[in-house]
């Protein structure tokens, strides 16, 4: 499923033009991205939570050359699914 499929799935349900729905879907993902870029978490009830986590530098190894190196401190995005989503995925 892509963004285009999401638009396709919902545009007749909401009774709006496909182009308009597409614009709003685009805005929704852009807004979520910019919020996360600020380091703020995004909680989508019944779906899940996106959190930005700070990682400390750590020692690693280049798997190709076997050379020791330092993996720099960085911020990574993590997603924790909601119980509701996991229940929907596992209902029989």
């Amino acid at each position: 499923m892509t963004k285009a499929d999401i638009v396709e799935n919902i545009f007749d349900k909401v009774g709006l033009l496909k182009k308009d729905v597409s614009d709003v879907v685009e805005l929704v993902f852009e807004t979520i991205k910019h919020t996360l870029a600020k380091g703020e978490e995004v909680k989508l009830s019944s779906f899940g939570t996106f959190t930005v986590k700070q990682k400390r530098p750590r020692r690693g190894r280049n798997p190709k050359t076997g050379q020791d190196m330092t993996i720099t401190a960085r911020k990574v995005l993590s997603f924790k699914s909601s119980h509701i989503l996991r229940d929907i995925m596992n209902r029989k």
Partner: peptide
């Protein structure tokens, strides 16, 4: 629309 997006993804 927002609710539909995440329902459809679920």
């Amino acid at each position: 629309i927002v609710n539909s997006i995440f329902e459809s993804m679920a």
